[in-house]
Design a protein around this nucleic acid. Structure first.
Lengths: 179, 179
DNA sequence: AGCCCGATGTAGCACTCGCTACAAGTGCGC
DNA sequence: GCGCACTTGTAGCGAGTGCTACATCGGGCT
């Protein structure tokens, strides 16, 4: 059998799938390679180093996130800021989103460690989400920029609280959002 | 020199110090042992396994967190919910808190992975913080329980956004908090 | 046709990981 | 003083880590 020629573009979706399924923090070359149908040898060949591979992977995941946002969420605007936040919270609570959140917290932890690649990917994902919220606030919102920031802050706090088993606090926090 | 007799109680503070300085996610037995003045051999002897060690360490850290909260934060109540959240955000932004946040995000990531010990420790820390917020809301707050949940949700969202380099969004989110 | 260079496989290096087997040292009660 | 249980040191195991040296294969270009 002829060896299957592969490139970063071929590899990245498979690597992303493996990372979504098994977490990002302790992803190592050999399992990644097995999932992608290659060898650790070739991953280093194509990406140069594991750090560069992870950086490329984060970029790819940020792109996946932007795409997923528009396809999984309703197109119409929410009737209120609170409803917008609650909608995002409800949708991201679906089991389908669990894999993504697992790696999301790995990314946040990496940011807190000062890793530049993680910071850049995380920042981009937050910017995408912020823009999305702006576009889904009520059309008559007095200040969409400030509103989106308030909504996003509440959403993220709620998601963190849910992650640590305090979903009840998260719900109350969302319910208290004004507007 | 006679070998220094050690117990979990002797070890835990040193282990906690090392973890606060170097992170929790990739803490391994040998560096931990070196920091505590023992050997990996003895850590396993005292704690049984690394998992049990980490569980004990998380419990210890939760206790440290509860203590730190009362000593580092002002005793008086805040004039408003918003001021309370902003005060916590400002204080936890001090460099002294950075080591703690680094391991905090490791803990959240562990929770998202389904680790029971992490979940328990994180939940306890959130409960402590929630109680603290209840006690620092304005005395005339109409509903301290709901208010504290709203404040805590916003604080945690703001801290996550700050961790990923979006402190401006966090500030706006805090400023929008009602009350 | 001949060559060259990018892509790949095999094997291995030096290291760390959590953990264990075995033996020795230590302080206690008797 | 004696013996026993608790505590510690030394050495090492098997697996996994990122990465590399070297040889080879094969398609495209001249």
């Amino acid at each position: 059998m002829a060896p299957a020629r592969m490139s970063r573009e071929t590899l990245l979706p498979r690597l992303a799938a493996h990372v979504l399924a098994h977490g990002l923090a302790d992803a190592s070359l050999r399992p990644l390679a097995r999932a992608a149908g290659t060898s650790d040898r070739m991953l280093i060949y194509h990406f140069g180093s594991k750090d560069a591979l992870v950086a490329a992977l984060l970029e790819h995941l940020a792109g996946m996130f932007a795409d997923a946002l528009d396809s999984a969420f309703p197109k119409e605007r929410s009737p209120s800021r609170r409803a917008c936040a609650q909608a995002v919270y409800a949708i991201t609570g679906e089991p389908a989103f669990a894999p993504f959140f697992r790696i999301w917290w790995d990314i946040v932890a990496g940011c807190s460690d000062g890793n530049a690649a993680y910071l850049e990917a995380a920042g981009r994902m937050m910017d995408v989400l912020l823009d999305w919220v702006v576009d889904h606030l009520p059309a008559d919102d007095p200040d969409p920029q400030a509103g989106a920031r308030a909504v996003l802050t509440t959403i993220e706090g709620a998601q963190m609280l849910r992650a640590v088993g305090r979903g009840d606090v998260a719900q109350a926090g969302l319910a208290a959002l004004e507007g």
